[in-house]
Simulated scan of single mutants.
Amino acid sequence: MTTFDFLVCKDQLASTELRRTPELPLSEGEVRLRIDKFALTSNNITYAAFGEAMNYWSFFPVNGSGDAVWGRIPVWGFATVIESRHPELAAGEKFYGYYPMSSSVVLAPTRLSKAGFADGAAHRAALHPVYNQYLRSSTDPIYTAGSEDTQALLRPLFMTSWLIDDFLADNDFFGAQGAPAQPGVMLLSSASSKTAYGTAFQLAQRSGMEVVGLTSPANVAFCESLGCYHRVLNYEQLGQIEASAPCVYIDFAGNADLRRAVHTRFSNLKYSSSIGGTHVDQLGGAKDLPGPRATLFFAPAQVKKRNTDWGAEQLGQRLQQAWQAFIARVTDPFEPWLRVRQHQGPLAVAAAYEQVLAGRGDPREGHILSLHAGD
Protein backbone atom coordinates (compact mmCIF):
# COMPACT_ATOMS: atom_id res chain seq x y z
CA MET A 1 0.00 0.00 0.00
CA THR A 2 1.10 3.58 -0.66
CA THR A 3 0.03 7.04 0.44
CA PHE A 4 -0.07 10.25 -1.57
CA ASP A 5 1.84 13.25 -0.19
CA PHE A 6 1.45 16.76 -1.58
CA LEU A 7 4.85 18.37 -1.11
CA VAL A 8 5.80 22.05 -1.31
CA CYS A 9 9.27 23.49 -1.85
CA LYS A 10 9.99 25.39 1.36
CA ASP A 11 11.60 28.42 -0.23
CA GLN A 12 9.60 28.40 -3.49
CA LEU A 13 6.00 27.80 -2.49
CA ALA A 14 4.76 27.66 -6.09
CA SER A 15 6.94 24.59 -6.69
CA THR A 16 5.08 21.42 -5.70
CA GLU A 17 5.34 17.67 -6.09
CA LEU A 18 2.92 14.77 -5.71
CA ARG A 19 4.81 11.85 -4.25
CA ARG A 20 3.80 8.26 -3.56
CA THR A 21 5.24 6.92 -0.31
CA PRO A 22 5.14 3.27 0.79
CA GLU A 23 3.12 2.68 3.93
CA LEU A 24 5.35 1.27 6.65
CA PRO A 25 4.08 -1.26 9.22
CA LEU A 26 2.73 0.29 12.41
CA SER A 27 4.67 0.08 15.63
CA GLU A 28 3.00 -0.85 18.89
CA GLY A 29 0.81 2.03 20.09
CA GLU A 30 0.43 3.68 16.67
CA VAL A 31 -2.64 4.21 14.51
CA ARG A 32 -3.03 4.89 10.81
CA LEU A 33 -5.73 7.36 9.80
CA ARG A 34 -7.22 7.91 6.37
CA ILE A 35 -7.38 11.68 5.84
CA ASP A 36 -10.91 12.02 4.51
CA LYS A 37 -11.03 15.77 3.86
CA PHE A 38 -9.21 18.96 4.75
CA ALA A 39 -9.62 22.68 4.21
CA LEU A 40 -7.19 24.84 2.26
CA THR A 41 -7.25 28.58 2.97
CA SER A 42 -4.86 31.51 3.04
CA ASN A 43 -4.17 30.49 6.65
CA ASN A 44 -2.37 27.40 5.35
CA ILE A 45 -0.33 29.57 3.02
CA THR A 46 0.70 31.50 6.12
CA TYR A 47 1.84 28.22 7.70
CA ALA A 48 4.08 27.67 4.69
CA ALA A 49 5.32 31.26 4.52
CA PHE A 50 6.32 31.14 8.20
CA GLY A 51 7.22 27.45 8.12
CA GLU A 52 10.81 27.83 9.22
CA ALA A 53 10.34 30.74 11.62
CA MET A 54 7.47 29.12 13.52
CA ASN A 55 8.26 25.41 13.05
CA TYR A 56 5.20 24.57 10.94
CA TRP A 57 7.33 22.33 8.71
CA SER A 58 8.27 20.30 11.80
CA PHE A 59 4.82 18.81 12.44
CA PHE A 60 4.86 16.41 9.49
CA PRO A 61 8.46 16.13 8.26
CA VAL A 62 9.10 14.56 4.88
CA ASN A 63 11.01 11.26 5.04
CA GLY A 64 10.33 10.99 8.75
CA SER A 65 13.33 12.98 9.91
CA GLY A 66 12.77 15.99 7.68
CA ASP A 67 13.90 17.29 4.32
CA ALA A 68 15.83 20.49 3.65
CA VAL A 69 13.94 21.21 0.43
CA TRP A 70 10.43 19.74 0.66
CA GLY A 71 7.75 20.11 3.30
CA ARG A 72 4.15 19.12 4.00
CA ILE A 73 1.84 22.01 4.86
CA PRO A 74 -0.35 21.35 7.92
CA VAL A 75 -4.09 21.55 7.34
CA TRP A 76 -7.23 21.12 9.45
CA GLY A 77 -9.72 18.40 8.68
CA PHE A 78 -11.22 15.01 9.46
CA ALA A 79 -9.64 11.57 9.39
CA THR A 80 -10.77 8.04 10.20
CA VAL A 81 -8.75 5.30 11.90
CA ILE A 82 -8.19 2.52 9.36
CA GLU A 83 -5.57 0.50 11.24
CA SER A 84 -4.75 0.42 14.93
CA ARG A 85 -2.08 -1.07 17.14
CA HIS A 86 -3.31 0.94 20.09
CA PRO A 87 -5.44 -0.97 22.62
CA GLU A 88 -7.85 1.94 23.21
CA LEU A 89 -8.49 3.02 19.64
CA ALA A 90 -10.49 1.06 17.13
CA ALA A 91 -10.75 1.26 13.38
CA GLY A 92 -13.67 3.39 12.27
CA GLU A 93 -13.30 6.22 14.80
CA LYS A 94 -13.30 9.73 13.30
CA PHE A 95 -11.16 12.63 14.56
CA TYR A 96 -10.92 16.34 13.85
CA GLY A 97 -7.46 17.84 13.98
CA TYR A 98 -4.20 18.92 12.37
CA TYR A 99 -3.05 16.76 9.45
CA PRO A 100 -0.57 16.86 6.57
CA MET A 101 -1.66 17.29 2.96
CA SER A 102 -1.57 13.53 2.47
CA SER A 103 -3.97 10.67 1.94
CA SER A 104 -3.09 9.07 5.30
CA VAL A 105 -1.01 9.69 8.41
CA VAL A 106 0.46 7.65 11.27
CA LEU A 107 0.02 9.05 14.79
CA ALA A 108 1.12 7.85 18.22
CA PRO A 109 -1.84 8.57 20.54
CA THR A 110 -1.18 9.47 24.15
CA ARG A 111 -3.22 11.04 26.97
CA LEU A 112 -6.43 9.47 25.71
CA SER A 113 -9.73 10.73 27.08
CA LYS A 114 -13.38 10.81 26.18
CA ALA A 115 -12.63 13.96 24.17
CA GLY A 116 -9.74 12.55 22.11
CA PHE A 117 -5.98 12.21 22.31
CA ALA A 118 -2.67 13.98 21.77
CA ASP A 119 -0.08 12.82 19.27
CA GLY A 120 2.86 11.59 21.30
CA ALA A 121 5.32 11.29 18.42
CA ALA A 122 8.80 12.22 19.64
CA HIS A 123 9.34 14.90 16.98
CA ARG A 124 6.20 16.77 18.15
CA ALA A 125 7.08 16.84 21.84
CA ALA A 126 8.67 20.30 21.64
CA LEU A 127 5.95 21.76 19.38
CA HIS A 128 3.00 23.67 20.74
CA PRO A 129 0.45 21.24 22.25
CA VAL A 130 -2.56 23.11 20.83
CA TYR A 131 -1.71 21.67 17.41
CA ASN A 132 -1.21 18.13 18.73
CA GLN A 133 -4.79 17.54 19.93
CA TYR A 134 -7.22 15.28 18.06
CA LEU A 135 -10.94 15.45 18.93
CA ARG A 136 -13.33 12.51 18.74
CA SER A 137 -16.23 13.43 16.51
CA SER A 138 -18.48 11.13 18.56
CA THR A 139 -18.06 13.30 21.68
CA ASP A 140 -17.15 16.72 20.26
CA PRO A 141 -19.90 19.19 21.27
CA ILE A 142 -19.36 21.25 18.12
CA TYR A 143 -19.42 18.31 15.68
CA THR A 144 -22.34 17.53 13.40
CA ALA A 145 -22.03 15.29 10.37
CA GLY A 146 -23.64 17.88 8.11
CA SER A 147 -21.22 20.64 9.04
CA GLU A 148 -17.86 18.91 8.56
CA ASP A 149 -16.89 21.12 5.64
CA THR A 150 -17.73 24.32 7.50
CA GLN A 151 -15.87 23.12 10.58
CA ALA A 152 -12.75 22.23 8.60
CA LEU A 153 -12.80 25.61 6.85
CA LEU A 154 -13.73 27.97 9.65
CA ARG A 155 -13.22 26.37 13.05
CA PRO A 156 -9.44 26.93 13.34
CA LEU A 157 -9.68 30.33 11.65
CA PHE A 158 -12.49 31.56 13.87
CA MET A 159 -10.66 30.36 16.95
CA THR A 160 -7.78 32.60 15.87
CA SER A 161 -10.21 35.45 15.15
CA TRP A 162 -11.81 35.11 18.57
CA LEU A 163 -8.40 35.01 20.26
CA ILE A 164 -7.24 38.15 18.41
CA ASP A 165 -10.31 40.03 19.63
CA ASP A 166 -9.86 38.61 23.12
CA PHE A 167 -6.15 39.51 23.17
CA LEU A 168 -6.90 43.10 22.17
CA ALA A 169 -9.67 43.39 24.77
CA ASP A 170 -7.37 41.80 27.37
CA ASN A 171 -4.96 44.65 26.67
CA ASP A 172 -7.65 47.38 26.64
CA PHE A 173 -7.15 47.74 22.88
CA PHE A 174 -3.83 49.41 23.68
CA GLY A 175 -5.65 52.66 24.35
CA ALA A 176 -7.26 52.88 20.91
CA GLN A 177 -10.85 52.33 22.01
CA GLY A 178 -12.61 55.68 21.88
CA ALA A 179 -16.10 57.01 22.52
CA PRO A 180 -19.03 56.43 20.11
CA ALA A 181 -18.69 60.05 18.92
CA GLN A 182 -14.98 59.66 18.25
CA PRO A 183 -14.18 55.95 17.86
CA GLY A 184 -10.75 54.47 17.50
CA VAL A 185 -9.89 52.62 14.29
CA MET A 186 -9.38 48.86 14.08
CA LEU A 187 -7.69 48.53 10.68
CA LEU A 188 -7.67 45.05 9.12
CA SER A 189 -5.75 44.18 5.95
CA SER A 190 -6.74 41.31 3.64
CA ALA A 191 -10.29 42.00 4.81
CA SER A 192 -11.84 39.36 2.55
CA SER A 193 -9.89 36.54 4.22
CA LYS A 194 -11.86 34.30 6.55
CA THR A 195 -9.73 35.01 9.62
CA ALA A 196 -10.01 38.75 9.00
CA TYR A 197 -13.78 38.81 8.67
CA GLY A 198 -14.13 36.51 11.67
CA THR A 199 -12.11 39.06 13.65
CA ALA A 200 -14.24 41.89 12.27
CA PHE A 201 -17.38 39.99 13.28
CA GLN A 202 -16.13 39.94 16.88
CA LEU A 203 -14.81 43.52 16.93
CA ALA A 204 -18.04 44.92 15.48
CA GLN A 205 -19.86 43.81 18.63
CA ARG A 206 -17.80 46.24 20.72
CA SER A 207 -18.40 49.96 21.15
CA GLY A 208 -15.98 52.82 20.66
CA MET A 209 -14.32 51.37 17.55
CA GLU A 210 -14.66 51.75 13.80
CA VAL A 211 -13.78 48.47 12.10
CA VAL A 212 -12.18 49.32 8.75
CA GLY A 213 -11.30 46.67 6.19
CA LEU A 214 -8.58 47.06 3.57
CA THR A 215 -8.83 44.83 0.51
CA SER A 216 -8.25 44.71 -3.22
CA PRO A 217 -10.69 46.64 -5.44
CA ALA A 218 -12.18 43.37 -6.68
CA ASN A 219 -13.16 42.32 -3.13
CA VAL A 220 -14.61 45.59 -1.83
CA ALA A 221 -18.20 44.66 -2.68
CA PHE A 222 -17.86 41.26 -1.00
CA CYS A 223 -16.46 42.79 2.20
CA GLU A 224 -19.20 45.42 2.26
CA SER A 225 -21.85 42.72 1.85
CA LEU A 226 -20.72 41.01 5.07
CA GLY A 227 -21.91 43.89 7.21
CA CYS A 228 -19.21 43.43 9.85
CA TYR A 229 -17.00 46.27 8.59
CA HIS A 230 -18.08 49.82 9.29
CA ARG A 231 -16.07 50.90 6.26
CA VAL A 232 -14.26 49.05 3.45
CA LEU A 233 -11.47 50.67 1.44
CA ASN A 234 -9.18 49.41 -1.24
CA TYR A 235 -5.46 49.58 -0.57
CA GLU A 236 -5.07 52.80 -2.54
CA GLN A 237 -7.61 54.57 -0.31
CA LEU A 238 -5.65 54.39 2.95
CA GLY A 239 -5.42 58.19 2.88
CA GLN A 240 -9.17 58.46 3.50
CA ILE A 241 -8.68 57.50 7.16
CA GLU A 242 -7.87 60.35 9.53
CA ALA A 243 -4.12 60.21 10.15
CA SER A 244 -4.42 61.31 13.79
CA ALA A 245 -7.05 58.71 14.72
CA PRO A 246 -6.04 56.29 17.48
CA CYS A 247 -5.47 53.10 15.53
CA VAL A 248 -4.64 49.41 15.89
CA TYR A 249 -3.36 47.67 12.75
CA ILE A 250 -4.28 43.99 12.43
CA ASP A 251 -2.22 42.71 9.51
CA PHE A 252 -3.40 39.56 7.77
CA ALA A 253 -1.68 40.38 4.48
CA GLY A 254 1.97 40.56 5.53
CA ASN A 255 2.57 43.07 2.75
CA ALA A 256 5.76 44.93 3.73
CA ASP A 257 4.99 48.06 1.69
CA LEU A 258 1.47 48.32 3.10
CA ARG A 259 2.75 47.87 6.65
CA ARG A 260 5.23 50.69 6.15
CA ALA A 261 2.50 52.92 4.69
CA VAL A 262 0.27 52.29 7.73
CA HIS A 263 3.08 52.93 10.20
CA THR A 264 4.09 56.09 8.36
CA ARG A 265 0.60 57.55 8.01
CA PHE A 266 -0.86 57.05 11.48
CA SER A 267 0.77 59.29 14.06
CA ASN A 268 -1.36 57.73 16.80
CA LEU A 269 -0.81 54.06 15.93
CA LYS A 270 -1.23 52.28 19.25
CA TYR A 271 -0.39 48.72 18.26
CA SER A 272 0.61 46.77 15.16
CA SER A 273 -0.19 43.06 15.11
CA SER A 274 1.12 40.73 12.42
CA ILE A 275 -1.21 37.76 11.92
CA GLY A 276 -0.58 36.20 8.54
CA GLY A 277 0.91 36.42 5.08
CA THR A 278 -1.78 36.24 2.41
CA HIS A 279 0.33 38.48 0.12
CA VAL A 280 3.07 35.86 -0.23
CA ASP A 281 4.93 37.66 -3.00
CA GLN A 282 5.12 40.87 -0.93
CA LEU A 283 6.21 39.56 2.44
CA GLY A 284 8.95 41.46 4.20
CA GLY A 285 10.46 42.36 7.51
CA ALA A 286 9.23 44.91 10.01
CA LYS A 287 12.48 46.63 10.97
CA ASP A 288 13.00 50.40 11.14
CA LEU A 289 9.30 51.25 11.03
CA PRO A 290 7.87 54.43 12.55
CA GLY A 291 5.65 53.90 15.57
CA PRO A 292 5.19 50.72 17.59
CA ARG A 293 7.04 47.53 16.75
CA ALA A 294 5.06 45.15 14.54
CA THR A 295 4.44 42.15 16.81
CA LEU A 296 3.62 38.64 15.62
CA PHE A 297 0.41 37.27 17.14
CA PHE A 298 0.69 33.66 18.26
CA ALA A 299 -2.76 32.28 19.07
CA PRO A 300 -1.58 29.38 21.30
CA ALA A 301 -0.02 31.87 23.72
CA GLN A 302 -3.42 33.49 24.31
CA VAL A 303 -5.00 30.04 24.69
CA LYS A 304 -2.45 29.23 27.38
CA LYS A 305 -3.14 32.51 29.18
CA ARG A 306 -6.91 32.05 29.13
CA ASN A 307 -6.59 28.44 30.28
CA THR A 308 -4.76 29.86 33.29
CA ASP A 309 -7.23 32.73 33.78
CA TRP A 310 -10.47 30.84 33.29
CA GLY A 311 -9.74 27.12 33.06
CA ALA A 312 -10.10 24.98 29.95
CA GLU A 313 -13.82 24.31 30.49
CA GLN A 314 -14.84 27.98 30.65
CA LEU A 315 -12.59 28.84 27.71
CA GLY A 316 -14.25 26.07 25.71
CA GLN A 317 -17.72 27.29 26.63
CA ARG A 318 -16.94 30.86 25.59
CA LEU A 319 -15.47 29.73 22.29
CA GLN A 320 -18.40 27.43 21.58
CA GLN A 321 -20.93 30.20 22.26
CA ALA A 322 -19.09 32.61 19.96
CA TRP A 323 -18.69 29.90 17.30
CA GLN A 324 -22.43 29.16 17.25
CA ALA A 325 -23.24 32.84 16.72
CA PHE A 326 -20.64 33.20 13.97
CA ILE A 327 -21.54 30.03 12.11
CA ALA A 328 -25.24 30.90 12.19
CA ARG A 329 -24.43 34.09 10.32
CA VAL A 330 -21.97 32.51 7.90
CA THR A 331 -24.42 29.76 6.89
CA ASP A 332 -27.52 31.95 6.73
CA PRO A 333 -29.60 30.26 4.00
CA PHE A 334 -30.65 33.57 2.44
CA GLU A 335 -27.32 35.44 2.57
CA PRO A 336 -24.51 32.94 3.19
CA TRP A 337 -20.96 34.22 3.56
CA LEU A 338 -19.50 30.91 2.42
CA ARG A 339 -19.97 28.45 -0.42
CA VAL A 340 -18.03 25.17 -0.31
CA ARG A 341 -16.14 23.80 -3.31
CA GLN A 342 -14.99 20.18 -3.30
CA HIS A 343 -11.69 19.08 -4.88
CA GLN A 344 -10.96 15.35 -5.07
CA GLY A 345 -7.83 13.58 -6.22
CA PRO A 346 -4.17 14.60 -6.46
CA LEU A 347 -4.47 16.74 -9.58
CA ALA A 348 -7.48 18.60 -8.21
CA VAL A 349 -5.62 19.26 -4.97
CA ALA A 350 -2.64 20.65 -6.90
CA ALA A 351 -4.91 22.97 -8.91
CA ALA A 352 -6.72 24.21 -5.79
CA TYR A 353 -3.40 24.88 -4.06
CA GLU A 354 -2.19 26.93 -7.02
CA GLN A 355 -5.38 29.00 -6.93
CA VAL A 356 -5.25 29.68 -3.17
CA LEU A 357 -1.52 30.47 -3.27
CA ALA A 358 -2.12 33.04 -6.02
CA GLY A 359 -5.01 34.62 -4.12
CA ARG A 360 -7.35 34.03 -7.03
CA GLY A 361 -11.01 33.14 -6.92
CA ASP A 362 -14.20 34.21 -5.24
CA PRO A 363 -13.66 35.14 -1.56
CA ARG A 364 -17.08 33.67 -0.82
CA GLU A 365 -15.76 30.22 -1.73
CA GLY A 366 -14.12 27.77 0.65
CA HIS A 367 -12.02 24.86 -0.61
CA ILE A 368 -12.38 21.34 0.80
CA LEU A 369 -9.80 18.88 -0.54
CA SER A 370 -9.17 15.16 -0.54
CA LEU A 371 -6.28 13.26 -2.09
CA HIS A 372 -8.65 10.32 -2.51
CA ALA A 373 -10.22 10.46 -5.96
CA GLY A 374 -13.90 9.75 -6.46
CA ASP A 375 -14.99 9.83 -2.79
Rank of each mutant, 00 (worst) to 15 (best):
E242R: 12
G77D: 11
G227L: 00
I45E: 11
G291E: 05
G92A: 03
D332L: 09
P217N: 05
A196R: 03
M1Y: 10
T21A: 01
I250G: 01
I142H: 10
A181Y: 04
E88V: 00
A301C: 03
D251R: 05
Y229C: 02
S273N: 11
D119E: 05
D36F: 00
G66A: 02
L233Q: 09
R339G: 05
T3L: 09
E242H: 06
S27G: 14
P141Q: 07
T331L: 01
I142Q: 09
A181G: 10
T144S: 15
Q314L: 15
Q282M: 14
V340G: 13
K287L: 14
A145E: 14
I275C: 02
Q302E: 14
A299D: 08
E93W: 11
Q355R: 10
V232I: 03
K10M: 14
D172S: 15
T295R: 14
A196K: 01
Y249I: 01
P183W: 07
A261K: 11
N255C: 02
L40Q: 08
E335K: 13
V81T: 12
S370G: 01
R20Y: 13
A245Y: 14
A169G: 08
R32S: 07
G184A: 07
T278C: 09
L154I: 03
R206G: 08
R318S: 11
Q320Y: 10
D172K: 11
V212Q: 08
F59P: 04
S42R: 13
G361V: 03
A256W: 00
V8G: 07
Q342S: 11
S207F: 04
L107E: 14
M101P: 04
A312S: 12
L315W: 12
G311P: 12
V212H: 07
Q314C: 05
F38C: 07
N55T: 07
G366V: 00
G120D: 10
C228S: 02
L233T: 13
D170Y: 08
A115E: 15
R85P: 07
G92I: 09
G361S: 01
N255M: 06
F158H: 07
G97Q: 05
K304Y: 06
S189L: 02
I368L: 08
A204S: 13
P300W: 01
S244Q: 14
S273F: 04
T199W: 02
S102P: 00
A152R: 04
R293N: 10
E148S: 11
S84F: 10
T80C: 04
S207T: 12
T199F: 03
L289T: 00
S189P: 04
Q202I: 06
L226W: 05
R32A: 06
G92Y: 03
D166F: 08
Y235D: 10
S104T: 09
